[in-house]
Amino acid sequence: MPHRELPIPLSAPAAWPTEEPPAARVDWRDRTALATDLALIGTAVTVLALPLVTLPAALATGSAAVRGRYLDGHLPPWRRLFQIYRRAVLPGLATLLAAAALALDLAAVRGGWVPGGPPLLAVTTLAVIGLSGVAALALAHLGRTPDLPWREAARRPGNHPKCVAALALTNVVAFFLALAVPVTVPLVLGFHLFAIHMLTDRLTR
Results as ranks from 00 to 15, higher is better:
residue 60 A to S: 06
residue 103 A to G: 14
residue 179 L to R: 00
residue 146 P to T: 08
residue 174 A to H: 01
residue 130 G to H: 15
residue 198 M to L: 15
residue 168 A to E: 09
residue 191 F to K: 00
residue 38 L to T: 01
residue 116 G to S: 13
residue 71 L to S: 10
residue 189 L to N: 02
residue 29 R to P: 04
residue 166 A to H: 15
residue 126 L to P: 03
residue 16 W to R: 06
residue 114 V to H: 10
residue 63 S to A: 10
residue 56 P to T: 03
residue 113 W to F: 04
residue 43 T to P: 04
residue 194 F to S: 01
residue 42 G to T: 07
residue 195 A to V: 06
residue 170 T to Y: 09
residue 144 R to G: 10
residue 23 A to W: 14
residue 173 V to W: 02
residue 35 A to Q: 10
residue 56 P to Q: 13
residue 15 A to W: 01
residue 12 A to R: 02
residue 67 R to N: 03
residue 8 I to K: 15
residue 76 P to Q: 07
residue 7 P to M: 00
residue 202 R to D: 10
residue 152 E to F: 00
residue 141 H to N: 13
residue 190 G to P: 02
residue 155 R to H: 13
residue 121 L to E: 14
residue 173 V to F: 01
residue 38 L to R: 00
residue 111 G to W: 10
residue 204 T to G: 06
residue 11 S to V: 12
residue 25 R to H: 15
residue 65 A to D: 00
residue 116 G to K: 07
residue 154 A to W: 03
residue 205 R to L: 15
residue 196 I to P: 05
residue 71 L to G: 05
residue 205 R to S: 09
residue 22 P to Y: 11
residue 79 R to I: 11
residue 59 L to N: 03
residue 93 L to V: 05
residue 95 T to D: 06
residue 138 A to C: 13
residue 67 R to G: 00
residue 26 V to H: 15
residue 148 L to N: 01
residue 130 G to Q: 09
residue 2 P to V: 14
residue 118 P to T: 09
residue 29 R to Q: 13
residue 160 H to L: 14
residue 44 A to M: 06
residue 99 A to S: 14
residue 35 A to P: 07
residue 28 W to E: 15
residue 163 C to V: 02
residue 75 L to E: 00
residue 134 V to E: 13
residue 116 G to D: 10
residue 42 G to P: 02
residue 122 A to C: 13
residue 7 P to K: 12
residue 7 P to G: 12
residue 69 R to F: 09
residue 194 F to C: 04
residue 153 A to M: 05
residue 183 V to D: 05
residue 148 L to P: 04
residue 89 V to F: 06
residue 12 A to H: 01
residue 26 V to W: 08
residue 28 W to C: 15
residue 124 T to M: 03
residue 34 L to V: 11
residue 124 T to W: 01
residue 17 P to H: 01
residue 146 P to R: 02
residue 79 R to W: 12
residue 159 N to M: 09
residue 123 V to F: 05
residue 100 A to W: 15
residue 99 A to E: 11
residue 83 Q to E: 08
residue 181 V to L: 07
residue 180 A to F: 14
